[in-house]
Structure formats: structure tokens, C-alpha cells
Design a protein around this nucleic acid. Structure first.
Length: 288
DNA sequence: AATCCGGTCAACCGCTCACGT
DNA sequence: TACGTGAGCGGTTGACCGGAT
């Protein structure tokens, strides 16, 4: 298997941009005969191109159902959501956007969306807030230097807080068995913290993920179409251009987003506890 | 007016996958 | 089962364009 020459090297086939005459020939042939074998098409259509080049020209440009023009905000949000779930699976992403090609989406991602996420402080690879100080530093260089220094410091403080919260969650989720009975009594500040802040958050996650986990196949692979549909349905049609879709975990079972949106979902009566905890963490982060 | 530079996008390259034999 | 081949995918390239210098 492996590599193969898609066209014979000595055939001296044309490369580069297509002329309108070539487009017309290919269009005419496929409209009349369809495309069953791409290797035969150039010869039959009278083109001095390789089959692969013809296929690409057809699928990315000549196809009648191609949607031309700028991407809408909704389309961009769908792409961002799907990318967080699927990664660089451009063809899979394109299958959710009728009339858009994988090449077009890939170009949009590399030229616009990646930068848009970076500017919003989101890592375009993981779709999580940027935690790499080097990346933050390079990002900050893109902005006003005076503003960026302050911003960078604030972001690093936030990151430290997030790390501490994640550690607390991890510890609370795996208590030693001997501690459990005593913790039930709610007398310990950390247990109160768990009961008031993290438990509701846990509940929300459980409720959100249960429809997905119910659809696990035998080999325990998440049913991606359900996830994908959830992502698409989450798009807010009224959102501003500057706003971004809610953060979504790359792998729901491994990563825990701790953004404001999740906090907003928790009963407001828990806010006081959360801010109390945040203040403690603020102090700890300042020490760090 | 000339040159440079960065952004965009069509097209190509190299690879893997799927399927037939 | 192994192999050959066509199709498709994702990364990269390079031509083109417009704005800045």
C-alpha cells in the first residue's frame, strides 16, 4: 500500500490553475456522464490533467451545490464547536455544512477562526483557556504592550486558580474510604465547599453527559453523531460576532471546563460560597 | 511609483483507508 | 490473507491581491 503515483510522471500533464475552457470541459462531461472513475475522466473529457486534479476541481469548485460567499456567524460557530469535538477532521466538519467544502473550511480555520480563538484566550487545539505561559506571552505581544502586561498577569492568576480548583475537585472526587463517614456530617469547610459548589456542578455534568453515556457502543466509544448534534443545537442564533460558543471539552470524560457559564448554571444561592472560595484562591494565587 | 509584507485561497503532495481480486 | 488500486483526507505550497511603507 502506501504511496502511489496518481498520474504517470512521463505523461507531462498540466498542473496549476484551471482555465475556463478546462472547467467547461469537465463540467460538461460530468453533467452528462457523472463521475464513476476519476482516472478515466480527463481522457474522456479531453483534458490534459490527472484524475485527482479533476476530482479536486469538481468537489471544491465546479460542483453545482457549492455555496459561495462568506461564512455566516452560525456556520463559524458550528465549525468551532465541531472542531472542538472532531479536531482537524475537515471533511467530517464539512458534512455538517451543506455546500461547504473541507478545503474551504480548512482555509477558514487557518486564516480566521484560529486567530479569533487565540485572541479570545482560547487554545485553538484544545479549545480550553490558554494555560501555556509561552503561548500567552506571544499572544500578549499582539496586543497593546501596556495593556497586555496587566492582562497577562491577570490571566496567569486565573490559571493558577483554575489549577487549584481542579486539584480540589480531583481530591474531593477520590476521598479515602475512611474519611467518607466523617465528611458526611458537613462540619468540615472543605466538605461544605463540595456540597455547596462542586456537587451541583457535578450534578449538572452528570445530567449533561448521561444521554451521551447511554449511547455508548459495545467498545465504549462515544456516539459522535449525538455529540455533534448537541454541539450544533447549542449554537445561539442571536449571538454577536464577537461572542464565542460555549467551551466544550475535547473529551468529555477527561476534561472539566470551569468557566463562568458552568458557574452561572449553578443555583445563585451558591454564589456566596463560590466567591468565598475564590477569595481564598486569590490569596493563594498571589502567594504563587 | 516601487517594493515589501501579510492574508487568502486554489491547487498540489503525500499519506491512509476501503475495497476488490 | 496479501496485495493492488482508486478515492479521499489533511498538510503544505505558491500565486495573487491589497494595504503599508
Amino acid at each position: 500500500m502506501g504511496r502511489y503515483p496518481c498520474c504517470k510522471v512521463d505523461e507531462d500533464l498540466k498542473k496549476g490553475p484551471w482555465t475556463s475552457e478546462e472547467d467547461e470541459k469537465l463540467m460538461d462531461y460530468i453533467t452528462k456522464n457523472g463521475h464513476t472513475n476519476w482516472q478515466l475522466i480527463p481522457k474522456k473529457a479531453g483534458l490534459n490533467r490527472c484524475g485527482k486534479s479533476c476530482r479536486l476541481r469538481w468537489t471544491n469548485y465546479l460542483r453545482p451545490d457549492i455555496k459561495r460567499g462568506e461564512f455566516s456567524i452560525e456556520e463559524e460557530e458550528i465549525i468551532i464547536n465541531l472542531h472542538s469535538l472532531l479536531g482537524n477532521k475537515w471533511s467530517k466538519i464539512a458534512s455538517h455544512l451543506p455546500g461547504r467544502t473541507d478545503n474551504e473550511i480548512k482555509n477558514l480555520w487557518n486564516t480566521h477562526l484560529k486567530k479569533k480563538l487565540l485572541k479570545s484566550g482560547i487554545d485553538p487545539v484544545t479549545h480550553q483557556p490558554i494555560t501555556d505561559p509561552n503561548l500567552l506571552l506571544s499572544l500578549s505581544n499582539l496586543m497593546n504592550p501596556f495593556e497586555s502586561a496587566l492582562r497577562l498577569q491577570a490571566e496567569l492568576t486565573e490559571i493558577a486558580k483554575i489549577h487549584i480548583i481542579q486539584n480540589i475537585i480531583q481530591v474531593l472526587n477520590t476521598p479515602p474510604p475512611t474519611l467518607i463517614p466523617s465528611l458526611q456530617e458537613n462540619n468540615y469547610p472543605m466538605q461544605q465547599c463540595y456540597n455547596n459548589i462542586i456537587a451541583p456542578y457535578d450534578q449538572i455534568l452528570t445530567n449533561e453527559l448521561s444521554p451521551i453515556s447511554n449511547n455508548l457502543s459495545d467498545n465504549m466509544v462515544v456516539n459522535s453523531s449525538i455529540l455533534e448534534n448537541n454541539m450544533i443545537n447549542n449554537v445561539d442564533n442571536n449571538s454577536e460576532y464577537s461572542s464565542l460558543p460555549s467551551l466544550v471539552p475535547v473529551t468529555p470524560e477527561n476534561s472539566v471546563p470551569f468557566d463562568q457559564q458552568i458557574i452561572d448554571m449553578i443555583n445563585p444561592s451558591y454564589y456566596d460560597d463560590f466567591y468565598a472560595l475564590e477569595k481564598i484562591l486569590d490569596d493563594e494565587a498571589n502567594i504563587i
